[in-house]
Design a protein around this nucleic acid. Structure first.
Lengths: 155, 155
DNA sequence: TTTCGATGGTTACAAATGAAACCAGTTTGG
DNA sequence: CCAAACTGGTTTCATTTGTAACCATCGAAA
């Protein structure tokens, strides 16, 4: 089934429900809202904080800009998330030897513990969501998202 | 062995880039941000305002709650969007005969004109985005999104 | 009727966000 | 060298958002 939204009869009407940007956003919003319970309800984290934690848990040590690139967040979001995680003593900053503008961020024991606690929940969430789809549907969403991602990347 | 590679097999590490909620959100965000230029740059509309306009343009007359349902927005967002569109004189409210809590909303000439001006741009945006995909990729994204939507709907 | 719970919609307030200005340190080109 | 441009990161301010409380009206039930 192709996306035929706009091929509809009335040329000057936009069918919002079938409009790709809207569908995508609505879906992402719903999924994200559901998922946020894992980090919000249990630890009161915001999404930027969760992503920062997740980036550091995954990579060990990163600079703020690296976190921004990996998780597609503006540097102000990263800055605020890092500040909050530091306040919780979930991460520490280490100044760079050569470039004094740069700080290397890493999780503390407590931060790592929280990360390790949430990872299985996150994986379970994704697994359960995907379990509602058939094999071919899972393939479809994976391929579709990858293709769109690639299309956007190329401008 | 590489230090921290594609370790999606490592059970206690979450690979953010491949995590469905994140991929979905990032994609939706990018697409939505691009698309927002059509209503933001030209008329200074917010997303809720655009959606409200779009709903009314599509359906002619709606109540605020109907708009909320159709476009998946909380009633406060709808309320504020409606207030702003009214301030611009892009829509008018008509009290319901039988239920004095309800107002029927409809676009004015000016509102309709703005809507009609933006619809072709929106359609072009979607068309150009989809044009970057192959036929099978378009099918994949359509099927994948529909499947996910259905899966969420069923709880 | 009177009362109580739902419903349509608005408002108040706190928190999250985005844009731009900003600070410090670093690189580059003349 | 040194000014200008750039980069990593923070802060400020206005706008947007989410939550909850709220107001008015309606419907049902006692």
């Amino acid at each position: 089934m192709a996306i035929k939204s706009e091929a509809s009869d009335e040329p000057e009407i936009l069918n919002l429900e079938n409009f790709l940007p809207y569908r995508l956003y609505r879906l992402a919003d719903a999924v994200s809202r559901e998922f946020s319970r894992i980090y919000k309800d249990s630890h009161g984290l915001t999404r930027p904080e969760w992503r920062t934690l997740s980036g550091l848990g995954q990579h060990g040590t990163m600079t703020a800009s690296a976190i921004g690139e990996q998780s597609a967040m503006h540097k102000t979001k990263v800055s605020r998330a890092v500040a909050e995680l530091e306040r919780r003593r979930w991460l520490t900053r280490t100044p760079d030897e050569n470039d004094r503008r740069v700080e290397h961020l890493a999780l503390t024991k407590a931060g790592l513990a929280a990360y390790r606690e949430m990872v299985p929940l996150a994986k379970a969430f994704e697994r359960e969501l995907l379990a509602k789809l058939s094999v071919s549907e899972r393939e479809a969403i994976a391929n579709g998202l990858a293709a769109l991602q690639a299309a956007l990347g190329k401008g």
